[in-house]
């Protein structure tokens, strides 16, 4: 799995590619924890290139959401592929996360809510 961070104004876009599973979840947690500790509170997880996610990957995303919200920030999700979208729907996480078709739309939503 590769994780890249891109700043879009005051929003941090976490671009995930490959697999977010039990093997890669430690790296994902480290990168995102460093990001939050640096002061980021508005995050978008862009899943456009995420090909696989398991329940531990989902748990890491939920953990990140809780952490961001505890600092009065928010996290949005964008670009779910059909496979990942199905997993979100089975686990009902589409009701927990705000999901947008792409990262740019998710970033604009942060601007609207200011």
């Amino acid at each position: 799995m590769n994780v890249k961070i891109e700043a879009q104004g005051n929003v941090s876009v976490v671009q995930c590619s490959g697999s977010l599973d039990a093997d890669s979840v430690v790296a994902f947690k480290k990168v995102t924890l460093d990001l939050i500790n640096s002061g980021a509170t508005k995050l978008v997880i862009d899943c456009a290139k995420l090909t696989f996610v398991d329940s531990m990957g989902l748990g890491a995303m939920i953990s990140l959401l809780r952490r961001v919200r505890s600092r009065e920030g928010d996290l949005k999700v964008s670009g779910l592929t059909d496979d990942v979208k199905t997993i979100f729907e089975i686990t009902r996480l589409h009701r927990l996360f705000e999901v947008f078709p792409d990262a740019a739309t998710a970033c604009r939503q942060f601007e609207k809510s200011v």
Binding site: I62, R66, I90, L93, R95, L96
Partner: peptide
């Protein structure tokens, strides 16, 4: 049963049984 939405664990068996 699906866990509470903010729980970080408990979705593995749910996925297996669904799929």
């Amino acid at each position: 049963d699906p866990p509470e939405l903010l729980m970080t664990h408990g979705r593995g068996l749910l996925l297996m049984r669904h799929l």
